[in-house]
Amino acid sequence: MKSRFIEVEKLEMPMVEIEKMLNVFLLRIAKGYSQYELSFLLGQEDFYIRKIEDITHTLEYKIEKSNILRQIFNCEFAAIVPNTNVTPSYTIKIFEHKDETEGITYKAEKVFADGTVKEIATFGTEDKELLLPSESTVTEEEVTAWILAKCQTDYFNESKAALQILKDYEAELEQPIRPLFLANALKSCNGTKGLPKINRKKDDNARFVYNIISNK
């Protein structure tokens, strides 16, 4: 059984993209967003971020995704896109550890020219229902009630992205909510048991958006 981290010799992604991924990882952990929650806010399929944070994949954060990430984390591009011309110079090294079930955990280190090593992050596959530490105190029931109330207005007459819905609710509450609770609330509005039906579809930018479907 392997019990230690082993350096990954061949990386599929360019180093600048790996560092960008690590920057976003640190931002989402600080915000308390799981892989699934960030995928949801980006308007992508459930395991989009899981794939990006798996270094065996070649999926990258393209420029349009970086723009949405800036809105999600309320940050500048510099927090996402690494400056490759900084001094002192450094390289990024990635290590992996496989457990008994062949699950892989990665560890990233920044190695400076003088030999100094700084650990960046340890990351791997997260459970879809994972709730990371968050400042939010809003319950899932409260989020669901808000969505149901909005269904009684014209709020969903126009398609809205998950990030817009989240920001609208947070602006009303003046506090953060968990994206997982919002995702579950939107999914629960499926037209059964007298509930309204909210449609999910891709827009022209290949981003999931939500709008109401009348039961009449």
Rank of each mutant, 00 (worst) to 15 (best):
T139A: 07
L148A: 02
T144M: 11
R178I: 09
Q44C: 08
D54Y: 09
K65L: 13
Q35T: 07
P133V: 05
E19D: 10
V81T: 14
T153C: 07
E100I: 14
M1L: 14
T105Q: 03
I18G: 02
V16D: 13
P179D: 05
L41K: 00
R200C: 09
A79S: 15
E60R: 14
L180P: 00
L182T: 00
F47C: 09
G124E: 01
L148D: 02
K110W: 06
A108S: 07
E141N: 14
E100R: 14
L132V: 09
L195F: 10
E100N: 14
T105A: 08
V16F: 10
E17S: 13
R50K: 15
F77I: 12
S39W: 01
F208W: 09
I55C: 05
T144G: 07
K150I: 05
I120W: 04
T91Q: 14
P179N: 09
F156L: 03
R50S: 13
E102L: 12
Y210R: 03
E96A: 09
S136Y: 02
I92K: 04
L132Y: 08
Y106A: 01
E60W: 09
D99Q: 10
K110S: 05
I6E: 15
C189F: 04
E12I: 09
V24S: 04
K202R: 14
I29P: 02
K167F: 10
K118I: 13
K2E: 15
T144F: 11
S136R: 04
S136C: 05
V24I: 12
P196S: 06
S39N: 05
Y61T: 06
T87A: 11
A206H: 14
L132C: 10
E140P: 04
Y90N: 08
A185F: 01
I212Y: 03
C151W: 05
F208L: 06
L186W: 02
E9P: 06
E96H: 11
A113R: 13
A121K: 06
K160L: 10
F123G: 00
F181P: 00
K93N: 13
P176E: 03
F25W: 08
F156C: 00
V209E: 02
K93Y: 10
F77G: 03
I68S: 04
I177L: 06
N190D: 15
P133N: 06
C75F: 07
L22I: 08
L148T: 02
I68G: 01
Q71I: 10
L186I: 08
F77H: 12
Y210V: 05
V8Q: 04
D46V: 12
K110H: 10
L11T: 02
Q152P: 00
V138Q: 02
S134G: 07
I63A: 14
A206Y: 15
A79N: 11
T137F: 11
L69A: 00
V117H: 09
N23G: 02
A185M: 07
E170A: 07
R207Y: 07
E142M: 10
R28K: 15
D203S: 10
